[in-house]
Every structure is written in structure tokens, then in C-alpha cells.
Design a binder for these strands. Structure first.
Length: 237
DNA sequence: ACATTAAGTGATT
DNA sequence: AATCACTTAATGT
């Protein structure tokens, strides 16, 4: 598989500054990927359009895909890997919102690009990822042209809104324990492993909580037998 | 062996 | 649940 490497400035790749590809050829790699990972996108014509206009991008852990205030020129379809979506306040307090993984797309980017608004969130690569970037003008145009594209976007909204509602009430009712469990399960599922390699400090940062609180809750979970703890390591049982 | 970083604990607010 | 102060444990040099 041929993967086009985009230029990297200080290891940051931003969708709002990437250039569109000037080509009318169908990229056979993209076509295969779409058929294998995005089977919901049924119309062959749509698949071919994605293969013509999409750009295959490889992203490494820690890169920033999208940042606050940025305009978006490409909407990412995540083929492989995991993208972490984060919200941040004026003081730099970050709060983890959700992960995007293979077969999914970034819902926030739809609303941003369709209404040409600036990003309200930050997207970071959590696990090395491969994405197909769709230039925004097509995202909009395909909505009325292809039923399955519209459905894809709508169900993406639906899934995300449900997640956000859950996130809101666990934050509003300060259910730290639930948030932690949810975070661990989410991460385990996204990275497809039972063993999570991270520190209590990092988790605390994502959940906007104190390290001690996370440590204590994890300790409690260990006593209950739901996890096994190690240095830089949490095993889900 | 020593320094650094991660994690555990109790007390206080 | 946050913060502080401190201890203990693991890991790197």
C-alpha cells in the first residue's frame, strides 16, 4: 500500500493547512480501503469519488490533527488507529471527550466545515493512524448526491451526541468512578488491548481530576478485582 | 549507588 | 473531590 506522507511542521499536521490533491485518477488503494472498512458507503460512484478526491495520510502518535480555532479543509475518515478528541478551557484545563477509531469519522469536523466554523475541539493521534482526508467541498456536495453518505454522517452525529450526553451527566453529577471506568473501557476497546500503558497522572489530566483521586479509585477497582495495576500499566480483567 | 519518576496514604479543607 | 505533605516503590544512569 502506498501512503503519501504529508509535510510535517514541528511534528504537527493540521487539516486546515493541508493542500488538496490535484488529480482525477482513482486511487485503487483508497477504493479497496473504503470497500473493506466503510461498507456503509454503498454507491460505487461514491466510493470512486472518495478514491479520486481523498488523500491517504499516515499519522503518528502525538500529532495534532486539529486544534482550537483552526479551519478545516479536510474531513478525516479514520481507517486505522485511534484519534483522541479533547476540549479545553481558557486556563488550559483539558477534558477528554471521546475516541474515534477505524470505520468512524470526526463528527465535529462535519459541522465545522459545513458551516465553515472554527474548530471547538482538539484532535490528537492516540495510536498511529491511517486516515482518508476528504476535501470539505465534497463532504457538502455528497450529502445531497448520495443517500449512504448522508446516512453515514447522520448516524455519526447520532452516536456522538449519545456519547456526549453520557459525558455530560457523568460530569454534572461528578461521577468520577464511572468516568474512570468508562475511560478505561473506552481506551481498551479503542486500542484493542486489555493492558493500558499510561500513568495515573495522564489519566487524571484527561479527566481533569487530581492524580491522587485517580490512584485511589484505581486502587479501589483493584480490590474489587476489575483491574490489575502495575507501573505505567493497567490491566482490565 | 544515586537520582528521577510513578504511585500510595493520611490529613486538611 | 482537591491539595498538601510525605512515603514507598520502580526504573534509568
Amino acid at each position: 500500500m502506498i501512503i503519501r506522507e504529508a509535510k510535517i511542521n514541528n511534528s504537527i499536521k493540521r487539516l486546515d493547512i493541508m493542500q488538496n490533491k490535484l488529480s482525477t485518477d482513482i486511487n485503487p488503494d483508497i477504493l479497496k480501503i473504503i470497500q473493506a472498512h466503510f461498507s456503509n458507503l454503498e454507491e460505487l460512484e461514491l466510493q470512486e469519488e472518495i478514491a479520486i478526491h481523498g488523500q491517504l495520510l499516515q499519522l503518528k502518535h502525538g500529532e495534532t490533527l486539529m486544534d482550537y480555532g483552526g479551519f478545516i479543509k479536510l474531513v478525516p475518515l479514520v481507517v486505522k488507529g485511534v484519534i483522541k478528541i479533547i476540549r479545553e478551557d481558557e486556563n488550559g484545563n483539558e477534558i477528554f471527550l471521546y475516541f474515534i477509531q477505524g470505520g468512524e469519522s470526526c463528527t465535529m469536523s462535519f459541522s465545522c466545515c459545513i458551516q465553515n466554523k472554527r474548530s471547538e475541539i482538539r484532535a490528537e493521534v492516540e495510536d498511529d493512524a491511517i486516515i482518508i482526508g476528504i476535501p470539505v467541498q465534497h463532504v457538502d456536495a455528497w450529502m445531497s448526491k448520495y443517500q449512504s453518505w448522508k446516512n453515514f454522517i447522520m448516524s455519526s452525529y447520532d452516536a456522538r451526541i449519545n456519547e456526549l450526553i453520557y459525558a455530560i451527566d457523568s460530569i454534572a453529577f461528578s461521577k468520577m468512578d464511572e468516568r474512570l471506568i468508562n475511560y478505561l473501557e473506552d481506551k481498551s476497546h479503542a486500542l484493542d488491548t486489555k493492558t493500558i500503558h499510561t500513568t495515573h497522572q495522564n489519566i487524571a489530566h484527561d479527566l481533569n481530576a487530581s492524580r491522587e483521586a485517580v490512584s485511589r479509585l484505581l486502587k479501589k477497582l483493584e480490590k474489587e478485582g476489575t483491574v490489575k495495576l502495575g507501573r505505567n500499566k493497567i490491566e482490565l480483567l
